[in-house]
Amino acid sequence: MISRHQRILFWVLVGCILAMASLLFWERERARDRVSALADATPIDAPYTNTESITLDLANDSDGSITAATRQIALPDEATARARALLEHLIAEYALPGSPHPLQSGAAVDDVFLLPLPVNGRALDASGNTATTGGTPTIPVADPNAIKPQSPGGELAVINLRSNFVNAHPSGVEVETLTLQSIIGTLHANLPQIEQIRFLVDGQPRETLAGHADLLRTYPSRDTTVQATVPDATP
């Protein structure tokens, strides 16, 4: 014979089990909804706007020229993503069959960083003030030799090329120079706030592109659409 208080305890325990099961089921549903909501908000495609007209400065090995060509492509709004997409479109043009400046296909640009000019370095803070982030305390240092912007808002573009692209690039003064001029001219035509351009390869400085064109210097952003000059042969 089960006593009355034991039966009461049994049913209370059963009630608790059911309540716990209901609570767990409800929490599980909430968590699933939360994850689903996050997944729904994750962008699948880059936030491109509609197609727009952009200018590519295209190189031609046969006469050493750079000519401007217009293309209708969709580009992201954000400036660094825009610069990177521009350069990927440019290099993709050179990978097409019959290109006048043939380059290997594949991703060429790892990243593009846009830094406001002048670019100043940072030094360790001797006063020992701890940074709010908990990292090493630093203070900005004004560099008197830093490149000054020619206009307010001028930026330095640091283009981080992939070593796969650089290692497969054809070697020669003309072909390497044309690639750099093509990149510089394309950025100048579409992102006028860029005033200076530097190149890295896999995040590191490299002396030359493929043995000739200097990758260590800072290039001014400029219009590179020049026709190769042929001097007058008459005396």
Partner: peptide, 26 residues
Amino acid sequence: QKQLGTALTRANIPLVMSRASVRPVD
């Protein structure tokens, strides 16, 4: 550069003249 280019043109040699950053020319 222009004088060299003129001489090469007279010799009927195809010519491209431009400017470039090629170390150690600078």
